[in-house]
Design a protein around this nucleic acid. Structure first.
Lengths: 221, 221
DNA sequence: CGGCTGGTTGAGGCATCTCAAACGCAGTGG
DNA sequence: CCACTGCGTTTGAGATGCCTCAACCAGCCG
């Protein structure tokens, strides 16, 4: 498969919404986000993409890209022409199956995220977000006890369906409980003392009933 | 493509979660839901499927079905063996592209639903749900000004990320405004006097700020 | 220095959740 | 025929978690 490789830097636009879908992209290093603009001009983050993730599937149905994609990080991108991918997949069943599998994986991931949103309170959602970010790195054999979120609080909020203030408060609460460490000055740098503790916190007894602001620590102590 | 056709009745289980993915299904008549069981035993509705929709994509990645699928209605199902579909798709590029397109469509649909959830208040979410149900029928050239939801309030709530009480209240409010008609006794039968009015209500100025309980009518009057 | 962006924190309001009660309808068994 | 039960729905009252609005702080850059 002929693929063009290029490196990208934070803020680079990988894909432009409403343009014709000619390319699919695979993140080979770094991280990207996909976002759409709502009617009132606000951007909503709809997906995060790490090494191995594909970008562009959402445009296949209509032939036009649905979302904008931006680099959040320096990294490298592999791009394939969609028409050539179709040809190649027709010749190589294994490739075709692979694409099916990747699309299916995205579908289930999205769905899982949706589900957590409905039934987890804000703190747990944010905790789960941090956990999933770390997991994404761990799956790819990268360091995951010290991560730096490459998104603003507002972007995280948009991704999780929360306001930026709520995200900020949730992070400080988690930090107060020792579930995460927050760098004093570089507030996007997060340390994770115990991944297990985070997981336990996310699926805390009762699902929806959540420890209150002050109680949040008790469940860990 | 060899397909087996069978008819189903309300409550029939089409697909069993955690079983191996051998079949993909296409709804040819009627409607189905897919649902997962959360840790505490509650079921969450993750998808609705009408004529032409596929069921089973979420299991491709792992080889195991993620969700249970149930018939909500009497109808007809076409089922394909996944391995045979792969073979056929390898021979017929058009089929392969078709499957890509359908999966992509599901992905964008799911995403759109997720987005509405984050930024629409409960009433608008329910209104949009009714609208989308009617649209699903209209797209398929079925009667859509009189629909009967084949779900309980609890199921709708689970699908929309709301409690059943909130769904109930939202429906009565919409009915009070004349945006929908609610049958006196068969409470799942809904009439839609004006589809346009519903759409207008859904994307009401301001996005998140929503007319209050009593004001909800004013925006229509 | 002064604006600007991103983050934190506080106070208050409100939409939604929680808990609870009551109703209609359908099915069942006496 | 009539309790009686169970389920789905409606409605109310109260609690609360998140949003809104606003102020303030820390870096960063011209």
């Amino acid at each position: 498969m002929p693929t063009t490789r290029r490196s990208f830097r934070p803020g680079d636009r990988i894909q432009v919404a409403h343009s014709a879908l000619n390319w699919l992209h695979i993140v080979n290093l770094g991280s990207c986000k996909t976002a759409t603009l709502s009617a009132d001009g606000n951007e909503q983050v709809v997906g995060l993409h790490f090494k191995g993730d594909w970008i562009g599937f959402d445009g296949i149905a209509t032939g036009f890209c649905i979302s904008d994609a931006y680099a959040m990080d320096t990294g490298e991108l592999w791009s394939l022409r969609y028409d050539l991918l179709l040809e190649a997949a027709a010749r190589q069943p294994a490739l075709m199956q692979g694409v099916f599998a990747v699309m299916s994986h995205q579908l289930t991931q999205d769905r899982h995220r949706t589900r957590s949103r409905s039934l987890m309170p804000a703190d747990a959602r944010v905790a789960d977000f941090v956990r999933s970010w770390a997991d994404s790195l761990a799956e790819r054999n990268l360091r995951c006890d010290e991560i730096t979120l490459r998104m603003s609080r507002a972007e995280i909020g948009s991704y999780l369906g929360l306001t930026l203030e709520t995200v900020s408060r949730a992070l400080t609460r988690l930090a107060r409980c020792g579930l995460i460490g927050l760098d004093e000055t570089r507030r996007r740098n997060i340390t994770i003392p115990s991944a297990k503790a985070l997981v336990d916190f996310v699926r805390q007894p009762g699902g929806y009933q959540q420890a209150s602001d002050t109680d949040a620590c008790r469940s860990v102590a």
